[in-house]
């Protein structure tokens, strides 16, 4: 945690057409950390991830990844710097089978997980290799969406609400998997609304409100900050 930040966002603003969705987001992520973005619906969590990937209409400010400015890059070039994105709606392709979905994202650097490792972590994906991607259950689709970005050699993973809409037992599996990939040295930025889930996996939490980061809580100090968090999240 004492080393230099892997990702440094300063004064990030973003627009979808006329609508101004981010109003100056600043945050840091260090290598090997799991960090969450907490906040209510519409606070700007998903927009922050999409801005990092260059998927919003217009953005300004600074997003430095491993010292390199990415704010002006096209989204495929941002991906090639070593950032991988798993969208909220999972983005499993209906016209591709499970294996094709898994193999789709191009390998951008050495160091990603091999197929054997992925099948050990996600045995279901091997059993259902030939099924169309969208015929999987919600939990399996989420596993597939995460598994496919572990292959690519990206070092920073952006996961948008991986627990959303899943049964509690599946959410626990996803939690175990996130701890496992942290063990393997991946860095994760996680968007969550489910703060009970977030505290089981994360090192730190940023809280967003109205398109800004308004607070940061270490996971260890969560207990003493509960009142504050409840205020922000309205839980």
């Amino acid at each position: 945690m004492s080393n230099a930040a892997m990702l440094e966002i300063r004064d990030l603003e973003a627009w979808y057409g006329e609508s101004h969705v981010l109003h100056g987001v600043s945050l840091d992520i260090h290598p090997g950390e799991v960090v969450t973005l907490l906040g209510r619906n519409g606070a700007g969590k998903t927009s922050t991830l999409r801005s990092m990937m260059g998927l919003v209409g217009r953005r300004s400010g600074s997003i430095k990844f491993e010292g390199r400015e990415t704010i002006g890059l096209r989204s495929d070039l941002i991906a090639r710097t070593g950032i991988a994105y798993c969208p909220e709606e999972r983005g499993i392709f209906a016209s591709l089978d499970v294996t094709e979905n898994l193999m789709l994202p191009p390998v951008i650097a050495p160091g990603g997980l091999g197929l054997d490792e992925i099948y050990t972590l996600f045995p279901n994906l091997k059993e259902r290799a030939r099924s169309p991607g969208t015929k999987l259950s919600g939990g399996e689709q989420q596993m597939l969406a995460i598994a496919r970005i572990l292959r690519t050699g990206a070092r920073l993973l952006l996961l948008d609400e991986p627990s959303e809409g899943l049964a509690p037992v599946i959410v626990q599996q996803i939690g175990a998997m996130i701890r496992e990939i942290k063990q393997r040295g991946f860095t994760v930025l996680l968007v969550e609304q489910n703060f009970r889930f977030a505290q089981t996996v994360a090192d730190r939490h940023y809280v967003m409100e109205h398109g800004r980061v308004v607070d940061m809580v270490e996971n260890g100090q969560l207990a003493s900050s509960l009142d504050r968090l409840h205020e922000y999240l309205g839980v």
Binding site: M53, G54, L55, R74, S75, D76, I78, A79, R80, A84, Y85, P87, G91, F93, A94, S95, L96, E100, M103, L104, P105, P106, I108, I149, T152
Partner: peptide
């Protein structure tokens, strides 16, 4: 596979580095 995927969701395929 790239072609079929990009037909469905070009933006996401591009965000994978294609």
């Amino acid at each position: 596979a790239y072609l079929r995927a990009a037909t469905e969701r070009p933006e996401l395929v591009q965000a994978f580095g294609v």
